[in-house]
Design a protein around this nucleic acid. Structure first.
Lengths: 360, 360
DNA sequence: TTGAAAGCGCTAACAG
DNA sequence: CTGTTAGCGCTTTCAA
C-alpha cells in the first residue's frame, strides 16, 4: 500500500485535486464544510504531504538547518537551545546536524541541508575555522556563529575578548594586585580571552600580571599543580589572584591552593571562564564569566529572519536577489557570575546546591 | 542567479543531461575522462543536486531522522552519539530534532521527518510515552527507544530494572545488610529501578531493605537531608548502605552523611544510578550504574538496518511490503561502575580527576 | 555514450 | 468551487 497522494485524498473526499491543494496551502479559499471533508479524508487515509513534491513545485521550506561541530559541549547545547527558541518564535523548526568534531563532516552536513532546500542555515564554526570553501550559494539565508567575519555575510559571535576583560577587571576591583593567568592554549577563544586580559593589564600599571604558559585548559589536575605551586611561593612573590582561562582549570587550581594550606578567597582569589556548571559543584563556588551561547543562537536566527525579510522585500519591488554586501556582525557580550571564590556576596552554605540534573 | 540544474551542468560540460545524471547515480557507467569533465563543470557552477527532485523521481533518501524529547540530558546525548556512530558505519547521516520537552512538538517533529522522506526514523520516547497515535506509516523504517513495546514493531530499551538489581546486588556483595533506598519518584525509569531492587530484596531475606518515599530525585539538597537524617539514627537502626535512584541525590546524600560525622564508605556505603559524570566530581568517587544510552542508540540503528534489509529482500522476491508483525525488542544491559563510595578498589587520590570538559 | 521522453506529487494559474 | 494543465529538477528507460 503505497503512500496516499493528494489525488487519493481528492477521490476519497469527492472533490477536485486542486481543492485539496487549496486546503493545504490556502485554507481560506475553501468553504469550511468542504475543508472538513477533505481533512477527514486525509485522516482516514493517513496522508502526509510529500515535502519533496511541494518544494519542487515551488513551495517554501520552513525548516532551518543548524550545524554544530559537536554536541558534547555545553556552549553548543546553549546555542541549540537559543536557536530553537528563537526559531519557534517565528514559526520555524530546526533540524540539527552534528559534525562530530570533523571538519570534513561539517562540509557534508552543510551540503545535505542545502540539498534538502532548507530555508536557512545556521552554522557554528569549528574553533574559528572560517568556513570558506564550504560554498553556500548566496540564495540561502545563512548565519555563521563564532567566526570573525571579514567577508560580507552574517555573523554572530561571543565576545571572548570581553570575557577576559570582564574577569580581569573584576579581580582588580576585588583587590587583586598580582594576577596569575593560567591556561594559555592554542584554542581560539582562550587566546582572545588572554588578549582581553592583556589589554586590561596595559591600562592597570599598578597591577602585576603574570602569564603562565603552562597547563592544559581542560585538565583539572594541571590546575591543581599550578595552584599548589603558586601558593607555595613566598608571600612577596605569590600572586594574590588566579585567573584561569577555563572553569575546569580554575576548580583544579582552587583545590591546589587549598592543598598548599591557603584559603580561597581569603589568601588568594580565583576566577575562571566558561560558565561551566560542572565547576559550580566544587567546595568554593567559582566566580566565572559566561559566554552566552543561548544569546548567540538567538541572534543568529534573528539574522536569518532579517535575510528573509530582505528577500521578501526584494520580491515585492521586483529586484533580483539583493546580494549581501556588508559584514553584519552581532557581538554578544558575556556576563560575569561573581561568587565566593573572589569574595563575592554568597556565603558558602553547608548544603551542596548542585542542581545540575538539567545539564546531563 | 538561480541555482544551477543538472541541465546547466550538462551544457557547461558539453554532455547530455542523462550523462550528468549517470555521473551522480551510476558513476561506473561513465568513462572517467567524461566524469572528470562533468565534475569540473559541477565545481565551477557550484552545483548542488536538488534532493527534492531526486527523491520525487524515485531516488532513495539516505537520511535518518532522530527525535529526542530533550537534548539537555546526558542520556539523550549518549543516544545521539550512539545513533550517529552506528549510522555512519552504514553510510547514513542523521538529522536530529529536539522536541524540547513537549509531547505535541514531538509529533510535529515526526511528521516533518516523514514529510521529508527520511529513510528511517529513530525516536526516543517521552518518559515511556507509548508514541501511539503518532501515526508512522508502516512504509518507513522505525525504531522506538525507551518504550516497552507491546505492539508489533522495533524497540530498543535500557533495562532500568536491571540497573536496580545490579546496584542492589553490588551493595549486598560489599557487605550491606540494611539498605535504604532513596528517591522514589513517578519517573518511569526510577520506578523500574525500584522494582529491580525489590526483586533483589525478595531473594535476600537476610538483608533489610527500607524504601524511603521522600525526596526529589533531581535535588542534591534532598539527598543531603536524607543522608544526614539517616546517619543520625542510633547505630542499631541505622542503614549501613544508601541506594539513591539518581546520582545527584547520591552525591547529596554523601555530603549529608559526612555532615552527620560518619565516613563513606567506612561507616556507610553509598551508591547511585545514572552514570552522571557530574557526580564524579564529589569528594568521594561515587559507585553508580550506567544505562548505556550509547548502546541503546546503536541498537536502534541496527534495527533500522534490519528493516532496510528486509525491505530490500521483499523487493527482490517481488513480495509486497512485508508488514511488521512481531515485537522486536532489544534490551540493553546496564553496567556497574564500582568506585570508592562502596569501598571499591580505587583510592581517593589527592588530585581531583574531573575530566569532564567533554561533557559540557 | 547520446538524445528524447515519461513521470514522481505537488503548486499555481487558468477558464469555466 | 471544479477540472485541467504546465512545470519544478531529477531518474530511469529506451532506441539510436
Amino acid at each position: 500500500m503505497a503512500r496516499p497522494t493528494i489525488q487519493d485524498v481528492a477521490r476519497e473526499a469527492g472533490v477536485a485535486l486542486g481543492t485539496v491543494s487549496n486546503v493545504l496551502n490556502h485554507p481560506n479559499r475553501v468553504r469550511s464544510s468542504t475543508k472538513k471533508r477533505v481533512q477527514n479524508a486525509m485522516e482516514t487515509l493517513g496522508f502526509t504531504p510529500n515535502q519533496s513534491a511541494r518544494l519542487l513545485a515551488g513551495g517554501e521550506s520552513t525548516m532551518l538547518g543548524l550545524v554544530v561541530p559537536r554536541l558534547t559541549h555545553g556552549y553548543s547545547l546553549q546555542i541549540v537551545s537559543g536557536v530553537q527558541r528563537e526559531a519557534e518564535r517565528y514559526g520555524h523548526h530546526v533540524w540539527i546536524a552534528n559534525a562530530a568534531d570533523d571538519v570534513a563532516a561539517m562540509a557534508v552536513c552543510i551540503q545535505q541541508f542545502l540539498s534538502a532546500q532548507v530555508a536557512g542555515l545556521v552554522i557554528q564554526s569549528f574553533d574559528g575555522h572560517p568556513l570558506r570553501n564550504m560554498a553556500v550559494p548566496s540564495r540561502t539565508a545563512l548565519s555563521c556563529m563564532d567566526v570573525q567575519g571579514s567577508e560580507p555575510g552574517y555573523f554572530a559571535v561571543a565576545d571572548s575578548q570581553a570575557e577576559g576583560t570582564l574577569v580581569a577587571e573584576h579581580l582588580i576591583a576585588a583587590g587583586a594586585r598580582h594576577i596569575a593567568v593560567l591556561g594559555i592554549s592554542k584554542h581560539r577563544a582562550h587566546q582572545d580571552r588572554a588578549q582581553g586580559i592583556a589589554s586590561v593589564a596595559q591600562q592597570s600599571l599598578e597591577v602585576h600580571f603574570e602569564f603562565i604558559e603552562e597547563g592544559d585548559w581542560c585538565s583539572a589536575s594541571d590546575g591543581y599543580e599550578l595552584g599548589e605551586r603558586l601558593a607555595a611561593r613566598q608571600k612577596s612573590e605569590r600572586p594574590d589572584a588566579l585567573l584561569a582561562l577555563s572553569d575546569v582549570l580554575a576548580v583544579g587550581a582552587i583545590a591546589g591552593v587549598q592543598a598548599a594550606g591557603l584559603q580561597v578567597p581569603d589568601d588568594m582569589l580565583v576566577a575562571g571562564c566558561d560558565g561551566n556548571p560542572l565547576a559550580w559543584t566544587g567546595g568554593v563556588p567559582l566566580t566565572t564569566v559566561v559566554p552566552s551561547g543561548y544569546e548567540v543562537g538567538r541572534r543568529a536566527v534573528q539574522q536569518i529572519m532579517e535575510q528573509f525579510d530582505l528577500a521578501k522585500l526584494g520580491e515585492l519591488t521586483g529586484e533580483p536577489a539583493p546580494r549581501v554586501v556588508d559584514v553584519h556582525q552581532a557581538i554578544v557580550r558575556p556576563f560575569l557570575l561573581p561568587r565566593e571564590s573572589t569574595g563575592a556576596m554568597q556565603k558558602h552554605g553547608a548544603k551542596p546546591d548542585l542542581n545540575v540534573g538539567a545539564y546531563l
